[in-house]
Amino acid sequence: MNIFVCISNVPDTTTRIKYKPGNKEVDYTGVQWIINPWDELALTRAIELKEANQAAIQKITVITVGKADAEPTLRKALAIGADDAIRVDVAPEDAYTTAVQLAEVLKSEKDALILSGVESSDFNSWSVGGMLAELLDAPSVSAVSSLNIEAGNVVVTREIEGGKQTITTTIPSVLIVQKGIAIIPRIPSMRGIMTARTKPLKVVQGIASQPMVKVLDYQAPAQKSSCRMIDPENIEELIDLLHREARVI
């Protein structure tokens, strides 16, 4: 089996978001780019699994949809331990077009376990993994919080409302993963960093596809009005405010 990890290239999660004049586009100047945190956890788990199941897993491939500026992120994924990388040379527009490009590359892969983070930390659309699965007509399991290969079977735990479920799935499948699949993302070793340069990074052309949603406008959220301080000796005041003013209890 081969594992494919879909990688999204996103601004560092501590970035202050600025907009270009007119508020129609985000201003990405000076932004530090990182692997989307959930994708990084997916990759970490994929590597752990390959280390433990050499026989079952042949290869880990990372794949992204993006222009050349996404390559440092792919190279970092290679340094962390992916075997090769694919970049679909298209600027990402919306979740749909991204999923279409990924599906085009992955549709011929029948022996594939595809991992995708539950959301990306930029547009938080929770969409690409499910769309990709539907386009491939493959099963998907969402909110996956643990993944194991047991006797060649893919065994996952998914979070459900009010609990969790252990599920087996077939190959190919798309697993949409969240925190728990791994806890701490793996840091590339120096050997990994040195070998990353020699690992294959294939650039493929995208196919034509039209976005279905478009951003019209960005706005900073309204500032919260200032915090009302309450004397710790007077909790009754807090209760009164929550009851009468905020009406939440």
Binding site: A95, Y96, A99, V118, S125, W126, S127, V128, G129, G130, M131, A133, E134, L135, S140, S142, A143, E159, I160, E161, I176, M212, V213
Partner: peptide, 19 residues
């Protein structure tokens, strides 16, 4: 959790845009 799991697949199946 269920809505998030279904919506993207549903959008593709219906040829719909998703938000």
């Amino acid at each position: 959790l269920t809505g998030r799991a279904i919506a993207p697949r549903l959008a593709i199946r219906l040829g719909a845009g998703l938000s």
